[in-house]
Every structure is written in structure tokens, then in C-alpha cells.
Design a binder for these strands. Structure first.
Lengths: 416, 416
DNA sequence: TTGTAGGCGTTATCAT
DNA sequence: ATGATAACGCCTACAA
């Protein structure tokens, strides 16, 4: 019989914090406004509160450390209750405890109530790590996001999480910051967890990553952008179609000069692909594509740059409509149009991408394309679940396109 | 000796997707604008591409399935290489392979190169799950976020991830959607992973959660908001101090009627706490607190409601300054002020919380308080790491306050 | 219905 | 420097 060592721990009752305030002015200035002054409201401080003690709550029967049953020294233990502890307390064998969790109907009523009681007392929770090792089931799904910080990707994470939770899968997240190297590193880490599946948010991987993915015999889903001719499952929308839709929206209104504005962030190929769809649509309409890339890589800076450039052009040659790579840029453009002497949509019709919350609130409200990140995330995880159920003998990569809405508001009206 | 079964799998070469487009109008209207029309750009579609086959790449020596060494049926295997496979291929014992990874200096030069070769060929990666089970070390840290979708929390996630990665900890995330029940569920799930530590983003847990936390003998960090008198580590800033700062900013400018506007989301106690700090500051200044709660629980709706209410008041009794619970509300207020016949900051001085990217771009630019979510997240994880190194005999809960900046811009100027 | 005996992939311990 | 062995906590196959 095995016993766990009892590790007591004192928990102090109070952590008393007092707030020392430092007021002062740091001269950080945004380019946007003349008067911006920053006051630091609290400095870093560490408090070591008085150490108290709580009733140690020894629980029902703190398992006592007996002399080693074998001559061999014992290994490091988790320090928590195990099936064996619970079994011993309930006077049954450990299999019965295991069965109680996995096939309750095979355990007699009497034992069930007895076990429930012991479990309640001890707060025993089965160890997933051991469970996964033993069953090779219900483990971990790794997902590499480009940028956890962006609301769009965050919604995708939520979608994946919700479905994963319902299917007893644990989501492991990694952030690639749009870099192939980071992605490769994340994939190596994930490989160690022997994930049941992987979800990726880009299609162009480093050679190392590709090799790893080829070896891993698990379902792999590329989510967010749909790409033809890839060996993995695909969920998302086509960036080209988005770019095309926006272009056609303006073409359909009779605009002749339509510009596509990118920010300086080169590694983000998604916006670039939207611009390709735009260019194609322009060609198809017999118009000249005009893709303009800002130097600034941040949205706000890039948009201001673009607007300044547009304002400097003679009205007769100035684009009549502008498609911004995303809503942040488009909203910035709307907000600063006045200061550049441009009227939106009068002088310049404008559209963005992403349907940010503020897009509906600006004056004029912003025409944009709304993807459905939550649907993409949840759908991706559903494909994972399906693939796992189907086994490795699945029919091959699926391509699922998620609908994307063109939300037409005021900013894109081309007058005359 | 153990051998793994060889599971071959055909990987199709092409997933050909074609984009069928459905154009049509769905009559969804936002209350904000009169003309908003939504066009669905692509409908759901699933393609089953042609199934091809890749060179099956049998690897160096596909481990052959021998007749069961024991009469017992074998358990489900992960299907990947194990230490034993690598050991056999290199003609050494499995311990040597293990040592190669954990104490390379104890393995002879010759064996090291031989092993490196086999590992390269097989792409063997040690199984973390088994490692954790055996060592009870270097496992998992669970973090319960309120809302992964919000940019603020997302930055915190990034901070935690970065530090976790550097310390060989895997971050497990859960989303509580501001609900205590979800938090409890997440904690139960985490408990099964036997996490090395937990990071939580709220201080008020359900009784069930509290019981679980008390039993778990791991470091627990409450991050985001600092609260005195709690039994866990605390990292973050004081919401009261934030509310107080904003109030004093207006009081210092001579404003007498200052209102604090909350949205209808009752479960989010953080904004409420900011309002408490505000109320205290008002009291201290001999002024009457005026906390106003909207019915709408979304930021945009709540802000429009608040502005309508303000516009309806006679100018002589109308608040001179308004502190909005967050920047989304404050920005919405700025954007719709004109339509309510109110000038900001002329009629109404305004401030928010959170320093959203757009806060610097609006006209007028928005005065706000900027927390540092990334610092909070990374600091929280650092406390975890420290606690783990220090062992359970640590000195007790730490309270670490993270600096928070008052960013003074144009919107908060109280004239006369 | 309940219990016994391995084994999942790894590492700690002890022996060579 | 290298290897044999048992153990981490759980679960499945089989026996009782």
C-alpha cells in the first residue's frame, strides 16, 4: 500500500497593503496632441505582510508517512491525494475509485455514496497527467496564434476554448508575434506535450516547422485564412475575396480611382492578400490598381501618413475611394480627415476591415468587412474533435469557408 | 524490450478549395446609423478534396510490431517514438537517452553524437506528460481570465506567457466571462492538472472555489487588482486609487459637480471600485458624489444613454465633468457629444480609463488612466516562479503594486 | 460487483 | 560512464 507524505503549510491571514503615492510629471508626448501630461500614480512597492497562521485543517486522515515498504527510496510525490489514498479511506481497492469516475454505473450504490463522501472530504481530483499517460486519450490541443493581443484573435481563442472545454480537451496557447521562428519554437514545445491536434493561424511555416508537422501524426488545422492546395485542414475566409468585395463595392458605385492602403508591417501577409484580391478586381474592371504602403508600421501612424499624402494630391488625380487594410486605420482616417481638409465620404469614400466596435459610432460610420473569428475558432476546434473521433483514417483535409459580411455604412458612399 | 507499432498515414497533397459566392442582403440594422446594409460574402461550404498520397517516409527503422512479449494485451500507445525506441536504435539503454537530455555532461562524447543522430532522424521529443508524472516538476500554471477578448486582459496573457516560456512552465488559460461559476469550473479543471501555481483575476470567489483554493497547496496569485487583507499574493493596481486620481484631477481644476458613469454590467466589480475611490475623493473634498449607472450593459449603448441623460439636464445643474468607467464609453461620448448639442470639454469635461489606442486620436483627445497589463501579467508569473523556487516555506503573501499613469489630454480641461 | 496485475513514458536510485 | 529496476498516478484486461 502506498501512502502520501503530509505536507502542512501555514497560510497567513492578512496581506496588508498600503499605497504610497508618487506624483510627478514624465514628459512623454504623443504626436497627436499638444498637451498631454502623464502623472504616475503609484510606484512599485513590495510589502511583506505580517505572517499569521490558519487552522491547519488536517483533513480527515492525513496520510501518515510509514517506513519505506521497499528498501528503495521513494520518489518525489505530488503531495496530494491519489486513488490509493481515497481507496484506502473508503476501504475499497483503487480500481473501484477509478471506476467511480469512469463507469459509475458499474459501482454499487452503497460504495458510490461511501466514495462520494470520501472524495468530498478529501477534495480528491483525478490527476489528468497520469490519466493521459495511461489512456492516451483526451489530452491537449496546441494552438499557435499570431497575436493574442488583437481582439480578433482573442475572439478566436474564445471560440476554441469553448469547444475544447465541451470536449474535455485542454487548449495550449502560444503566441508567435507574426514570426515564423516563434511559431517553430512553439511547435517544438507543443510536440513535447504530444498534442492530440494542432491549430495554426498561418499557412507559411519555416522549413523546420514543416518537417515537424509532417512527422506529427495528428490532425492539423490551419485556421483564419483559407488557402487552396495545402495538406492540412483549412478553416476561415479568403482574404482575396474580402479585398475583391471591397473593391467591387466601390467599382459598383462608379469610382475609377480606388486606392488600397497598407501599413508598414511587412510580416503580416494577410493584409497583403486582401490587397491582391483588390488588385485582381481592379484588373477585372479594367481599372489600374493602386496599392499604397505607409512607412509607419502602427495603424494610427500609417493612417495619418496616408491621409497627409492624399491631401497633398491635386483633387483631380486624388483617389475617389480608399480601402484601408484594417478598421483601426480607417477610423483614424475618419477622425483626422477634417484636419487635412478632406471630407469623408464627400471627397473620399473610405472602407476598412474587421468591424471594430467603434466602426458603427464614428461620423460618418464606417463601411467594413466583418469576419467571424469566434466561428472560425470554434469551427477549427470542431474539426479537431471530428478528426479525433474519425481516427487517423480520415478522408483527408477539409476546407471550410466561414461567411464574412460586408457591412455597408456611411463612409463608403461615392457621390456623383 | 518494448516496440511501438508503426502507424503509417497517407497525407493527401492537395486541398483544392473553390469559393462559391452568395450575394444577398440581410437586414441587420445597428441603432447608430440609418443606412447600414450587410452583404454576406461567402456561405459555409465544405470541400472534400481529392485524396492523394505522399511518400510515406518510413524513417530510419520503422519499429516493427513483435508478438506480445507478455500474454497480456498491450495498452493504447501514443504511436510516437519513446526513449526505448531511441535507445534501441542507438544501441544503448533508455537511461542514457534520458541523461542525454537532462544531464548531457554525464554522457560520453561518442554516445552523445550517436544519440544526436538518432534523435535527429526520428524527430524524437521527450513526452512532457510522462516527465511531469515522474518528476513532479516543471509543469503547468493555470490562469483564469475574466475576458480573454478584451485587449487589456490579452496583454496580461502575453505577459504571463512570456515569463512562463522562459521558465519552462506551460500556461493553461480559462475564461470566466466575469462569472464566479465559470471560475469555479475552470479551477476544478485546473486542479486535475495538478498545477504548480494558479493566477486569478478576481478577488471574490465562490465558496466552492475558496474551499478548493484553500486545499490546493500551491502558490496563488491574484492579479490585476490589489486588495488588502487577502490570503494570496497580490499584483496590480488599486482601483480606488484610480478613481480617486481622476476625481482629484477634476476637483483640482475647480469642478464642483462631477459625475461617475457606470455601464449596466453589474458583475464587473472593478469599475464599481473605481467609483468608490471617486466617491471617497469627493467626500474628502466636501463635494457630493454622483454615481450614475446606465441600463445598457454594453459600453457604446451605456455611453449614449448617459449622454442623452446629461443633455436633458438644465445646464445649471448639469455635471461639469464626467468620469466614464472606461475608455470605450468615454470615446463613444466624445463621438456622439455633438449630436447631443454638448461640447467637450467646453460644456462637459470627460475622462476615461484604460488608455485605448484611439484615446490619443479623438477630437478632443481623451484624458485617461493607463494601467500596465503586460507588467501585471509578467510580474504575476514572476511571483509564481519565485514562490516555486523558494519552496512552500515562503514568507507569505506578497503585495506588489504596479504603477498606473494618469494621462492628461484635452478632454478633461475644465474651463472657468 | 469487486479485485489483481501489469503497463503508459519518463526519471531517480542504486549497482556496476 | 552506463545500465537494471522501480516508481510517478491512473486505467484496462482479466480473474474471481
Amino acid at each position: 500500500m502506498r501512502v502520501s507524505p503530509w505536507k502542512g503549510r501555514c497560510q497567513p491571514r492578512l496581506g496588508r497593503g498600503c499605497y504610497r503615492l508618487h506624483f510627478g510629471i514624465a514628459g512623454e508626448m504623443k504626436p497627436v496632441t499638444l498637451s498631454e501630461c502623464i502623472i504616475r500614480c503609484a510606484n512599485w512597492s513590495t510589502h511583506q505582510p505580517i505572517l499569521g497562521s490558519m487552522p491547519t485543517d488536517p483533513g480527515p486522515v492525513p496520510p501518515a508517512k510509514t517506513a519505506a515498504t521497499r528498501s528503495r527510496a521513494s520518489r518525489p510525490r505530488s503531495g496530494t491525494y491519489t486513488v490509493h489514498d481515497v481507496a484506502r479511506m473508503a476501504g475499497v481497492s483503487s480500481v473501484t475509485v477509478s471506476r467511480y469516475f469512469n463507469e459509475p454505473q458499474k459501482v454499487s450504490e452503497a460504495l458510490r455514496t461511501r466514495l462520494a463522501q470520501v472524495i468530498e472530504q478529501t477534495g480528491y481530483v483525478p490527476n489528468q497527467v497520469a490519466r493521459i499517460l495511461a489512456t492516451n486519450q483526451g489530452g491537449v490541443v496546441g494552438a499557435v496564434m499570431q497575436n493574442v493581443t488583437s481582439p480578433t484573435f482573442a475572439d478566436m481563442v474564445r471560440g476554441m476554448m469553448d469547444v475544447a472545454e465541451r470536449n474535455d480537451l485542454q487548449l495550449l496557447l502560444a503566441n508567435s508575434h507574426f514570426s515564423r521562428d516563434s511559431e517553430a519554437r512553439a511547435l517544438r514545445t507543443f510536440a513535447g506535450w504530444h498534442p492530440r491536434a494542432l491549430i495554426l493561424t498561418r499557412g507559411d511555416h519555416s522549413p523546420e516547422s514543416d518537417a515537424l508537422l509532417a512527422r506529427l501524426k495528428v490532425p492539423i488545422v490551419e485556421a483564419w485564412e483559407v488557402h487552396a492546395g495545402r495538406p492540412f485542414h483549412q478553416v476561415g475566409f479568403s482574404q482575396q475575396v474580402v479585398g475583391r468585395m471591397l473593391a467591387e463595392h466601390f467599382v459598383g458605385q462608379g469610382a475609377l480611382r480606388i486606392r488600397f492602403v497598407l501599413n508598414g508591417a511587412v510580416e503580416d501577409g494577410r493584409a497583403t492578400r486582401r490587397s491582391e484580391g483588390y488588385a485582381q478586381a481592379m484588373h477585372d474592371a479594367g481599372l489600374v490598381p493602386d496599392v499604397w504602403r505607409a512607412r509607419a508600421s502602427d495603424d494610427v501612424g500609417a493612417a495619418r501618413e496616408a491621409m497627409a499624402a492624399l491631401a497633398a494630391m491635386p483633387p483631380g488625380r486624388r483617389p475617389r475611394a480608399v480601402i484601408f487594410a484594417n478598421d483601426n486605420m480607417a477610423i483614424t482616417a475618419i477622425l483626422c480627415a477634417h484636419s487635412h481638409g478632406l471630407a469623408i465620404p464627400g471627397d473620399l469614400a473610405v472602407a476598412g476591415f474587421g468591424d471594430a466596435p467603434l466602426a458603427a459610432v464614428t461620423t460618418p460610420s464606417l463601411t467594413t468587412v466583418r469576419p467571424d473569428p469566434y466561428a472560425i475558432g470554434s469551427r477549427a476546434m470542431e474539426i479537431v474533435v471530428t478528426s479525433l473521433h474519425a481516427g487517423t483514417a480520415s478522408a483527408g483535409p477539409q476546407v471550410q469557408e466561414i461567411a464574412c459580411d460586408l457591412v455597408i455604412r456611411e463612409s463608403s458612399r461615392v457621390v456623383r
